[in-house]
Every structure is written in structure tokens, then in C-alpha cells.
């Protein structure tokens, strides 16, 4: 576990003990990452900001259940954000542009969240369009392999191999492989 991960885990442990300043610190470290993720999925600023509030409030209330042996804090937060954002998107309260959604790499480097994040973003940009497209359709639109195959009219086996290869390349760029 890297220093940043250990600090994150210590903050969550402090939150579990009722330390409100720990939540404020954790928010400063990861709010940018989570808001970016929410915006890619729901595409509406106010909805995304509400989700950001809700995910950190959930983290505060669920802090005692975080288990550092099962993964990083940022992943724990991102999984919650993605799940909530996709639920919101599917509830049809947020209009979205089907078809081209998730195709572009948004060049919005508002802040550098972490070296890992910068490396993964660079790696994402270096993926081929075909690979990047299936990865983003899965992660940001919540499509299954068969739904992606249908959406872009390619065999499901090709979808699976592109997803695996694409995410595999991104994973290689994270320091301290777990």
C-alpha cells in the first residue's frame, strides 16, 4: 500500500471514530475525481454535485465498514459514485445523448488528483479508439458486453477482448500493483 493509500485509510478510520475533519480532508483528496466521474455518467452539473454530496455523506456513515484489505479508498468511493450515477441515469431523470456518449476523451485537466490518475489518463489517451470506446461504454454508460456488441455492431467476443486488453493496459500504469 502506498503512502497516499495509507493516509486515505487512516482518514476513513478517523471518520469511523467520528472525526469530521477527516471527512473534510478525504473530500479534498478525492472530490475532483468523483465529480469528474459523475459528470461523465449523468452529464448534468447539478445532479453530479448532488451525487458528490451524497457519496461522501454515505462514506461518512459507512466508514466503519471500509476494509483496507479489499481495495483502495478511492476505489471504494468511485464504486459508490458509479453505482449511484448509473441508477440516476437509468431512472430517466437525466437526459443523455445515446450513441456517441463517452466517445471523446474530455481534456478537462482541472486539477491533478494523483500521479496514478495522471498516468491512467495518459494511458487512456494512448489506447486505440476502438478499445477506448468499449471501455467507456461499459464504465460510463453501464452497458454489458452484449449491449455494447449490439450498440456498435461487433461480435461479443471482440467486445470482451477489447475490454480486457484496454483495462489491462490502464492497470499497468498504476503504481504499486496490488
Amino acid at each position: 500500500m502506498g503512502d497516499d493509500d495509507a493516509e486515505d485509510a487512516a482518514l476513513v478510520a478517523a471518520m469511523a471514530a467520528g472525526d469530521r475533519t477527516a471527512l473534510a480532508s478525504l473530500y479534498e483528496r478525492h472530490a475532483g475525481l468523483l465529480l469528474g466521474l459523475a459528470l461523465k455518467i449523468v452529464r448534468e452539473r447539478r445532479e453530479a454535485e448532488d451525487l458528490l454530496h451524497d457519496v461522501f455523506l454515505e462514506a461518512w456513515r459507512q466508514a466503519r465498514h471500509f476494509d483496507p484489505k479489499r481495495g483502495r479508498v478511492r476505489t471504494w468511493l468511485a464504486i459508490r459514485m458509479r453505482s449511484r450515477a448509473l441508477d440516476l441515469q437509468k431512472s430517466a431523470r437525466v437526459s443523455r445523448n445515446a450513441g456517441d456518449a463517452g466517445l471523446e476523451v474530455v481534456a478537462d485537466e482541472a486539477e491533478v488528483v494523483s500521479p496514478d490518475h495522471a498516468r491512467v489518463r495518459t494511458a487512456l489517451a494512448s489506447l486505440g479508439d476502438d478499445q477506448r470506446r468499449v471501455v467507456e461504454l461499459a464504465y460510463f454508460e453501464g452497458l454489458s458486453c452484449s449491449e455494447i456488441a449490439e450498440r456498435i455492431a461487433i461480435p461479443i467476443g471482440t467486445v470482451k477482448s477489447r475490454l480486457a486488453a484496454g483495462l489491462g493496459k490502464l492497470r499497468e500504469h498504476i503504481g504499486g500493483k496490488r
Binding site: L37, V105, I174, R178
Partner: peptide
């Protein structure tokens, strides 16, 4: 973890 870092920060 890799997947969680795909989106650009805002």
C-alpha cells in the same frame, strides 16, 4: 482501481 481513474477530474 484502474477503472475508477478513467474520468478526467473536475
Amino acid at each position: 482501481d484502474a477503472a475508477s481513474l478513467i474520468a478526467a477530474p473536475v
